[in-house]
Design a binder for these strands. Structure first.
Lengths: 332, 332
DNA sequence: GCCCGCCTTGCTCATATGAGCAACAGCGTG
DNA sequence: CACGCTGTTGCTCATATGAGCAAGGCGGGC
């Protein structure tokens, strides 16, 4: 006995055919994608032409009745990537699925950035990197031998006396080791209390040499910090939570290479900026290859500030952040 | 500038091609489904033949890397339907997506049952129905004019003095009205306290006539009750929660047309069965068209008992219940 | 009531893809 | 080291599908 497909019968004598076009599209899609029937076969079953079947399938895909998803840890969202490139004039964009929850999001975006770096041609001879949790994830996920002979240079201040994950030293040396290169650390605090001290440190021969090297790196890899008390700058003691709160009041949405910016990508506190050691925002803007790695809801505002104001030329991010950048609704 | 597809470059001079077959399948799937490139184009981009592209796509679909889903309130799961028919020798099966949570599940399964009934050919002249919340949903969802001239007959006892939703009278009359037919109610309680009383009622001319009509209905539409205190039999006062607990101790997994059954589809308490008014289990087994409507986790055990023991010839259910029947894991 | 414009439909022909087959490559065993 | 077997690959030809076009139908305006 033939099974019934509701409101569709396979009994040729029946005249109760589907008249609701949306339900017709659903049935057509089910027969095509679930039952692997040809458009011609479906036409025969439903008493419509194969051309109409084809149009209904296209309509079903367009209306989201048919949802085709690539599900894999290394999956990308190529359509969203193109939209980001076109909207913001980016040289490149990598977008990974947001997935259910943010549980493994940081590691997956780290993996995506590692993949990108590995595929990058020409291989950057000198790679400037920032430091923080996201860059640490990238370092972890890079495979040994991702390149050879890369000099990794630290581009924002931050001296770490211990060797726990997330510090500048650990991150830079791991990336360098995995490329059979070496790391050049910036032996300076991220932020000095007095401008004079900062200028003195910058004038020191060893620090000046590193800053000079940082300034002419062939590519930069960096993330951003959230403007709240979870910032590694607070964690490391450079700023107090009250300092950050004050910066937020002044319009700060986050920091990039240790420098707090507002929604327009401008420094919010010139005095603080003057006391901050590391690559300048203008140098980042002028960089040939500035790869910005960012994921997670908390960083949407600072991500927008960086991407829309030319502070990066490549972004590696997740789908939800990309959607926020593009002002789209994510279908969930 | 061409964007990078990590580990894949569009720069023809590069030799860093993807060697990991799984990642290659991911990229191929992304280019095909997200970018709408042809297999030939993809082959050119990735330096493989279009035949290999085709194989990688088939592999991606088979391994679940590509997930194609039909998302619509009226969507069905045709593959699972065929599996149920084949496994249990059912004349038909309708399976709807379980969806996120059980929020609207009962109304959706009600809608699916209504669709099925409407499409059923030949139209049943006499339709025997049980009563309860699920059948009430079906009645609600039926469209006026779903058929013409259908006699709806109540097949299990249960007198309802009020006209709230879910009662036998309301359900039967709604279904009948929508088919321009009439309802024949079974003027008897579901369960009597004494066998003699039950026998007296069954012998009464009017009740006997209804039972006779019920016995020769051309199709039956029914659901099942959970063996716990939420049962409508408890709700209606026919049984106490302690009675149901005792039935569970005896192995009851639920009730069908007011009769408690165990996992093998047998009555668990012959004495209680003797005092229960309505269609017998054997009559249901022998029915030409017995449409069983069931959804929700709580009913998995009784659904299994009914489907695997020939107490229905058609099942309308949700994907999770179907998976439980088939002993499959639902991908979520 | 007629005409015009827009949308839908079916078709032809081109393009895209798949099935089945033969050849090749790699691995394991004697 | 050679042979056999298994799995993968590329190809030919058939099948499935899509693009573009012409015709038809429907609705609105004059």
């Amino acid at each position: 006995m033939f099974p019934l497909i509701c409101a569709i019968t396979l009994n040729e004598k029946e005249d109760a055919v589907i008249t609701d076009p949306e339900l017709l599209a659903v049935r057509v899609a089910e027969l095509y994608y679930d039952e692997n029937k040809t458009q011609d076969e479906i036409g025969g079953l439903l008493k419509i032409t194969r051309w109409k079947v084809g149009r209904l399938l296209a309509q079903a895909r367009e209306q989201g009745i048919v949802r085709i998803e690539i599900v894999h840890p290394r999956a990308r969202r190529l359509t969203v990537e193109r939209q980001l490139r076109e909207r913001f004039g980016l040289a490149d964009a990598v977008v990974i699925p947001s997935g259910a929850g943010e549980g493994d999001l940081q590691s997956r975006v780290g993996q995506a950035a590692a993949d990108y770096l590995t595929a990058l041609r020409p291989v950057p001879r000198t790679l400037g990197i920032s430091w923080g949790r996201t860059l640490s994830e990238v370092a972890e996920r890079l495979e040994a031998g991702w390149a050879t002979g890369v000099t990794v240079v630290q581009i924002n201040g931050g001296v770490s006396l211990n060797r726990r994950a997330g510090t500048a030293a650990t991150t830079a040396s791991m990336i360098a080791q995995k490329a059979q290169g070496h790391a050049t650390l910036l032996p300076s605090p991220a932020i000095l209390e007095r401008v004079e001290t900062k200028q003195a440190i910058e004038s020191d021969r060893t620090v000046a040499a590193v800053l000079e090297l940082a300034g002419r790196a062939s590519a930069y890899l960096f993330s951003a910090g959230v403007a709240n008390e979870s910032s590694v700058l607070v964690d490391s003691g450079y700023l107090a939570p009250s300092d950050v709160a004050e910066l937020v009041r002044k319009g700060a949405v986050g920091d990039v290479v240790g420098r707090y910016i507002d929604a327009n990508g401008n420094t919010v506190d010139p005095g603080l900026d003057e006391r901050t050691v590391g690559l300048g925002l203008d140098q980042l803007r002028q960089a040939k290859m500035a790869i910005f790695v960012v994921a997670g809801y908390a960083k949407h505002d600072v991500a927008r500030a960086i991407v829309t104001n030319g502070l990066c030329s490549v972004v590696v991010t997740d789908e939800a952040t990309a959607a926020a950048l593009l002002d789209l609704k994510v279908q969930e």
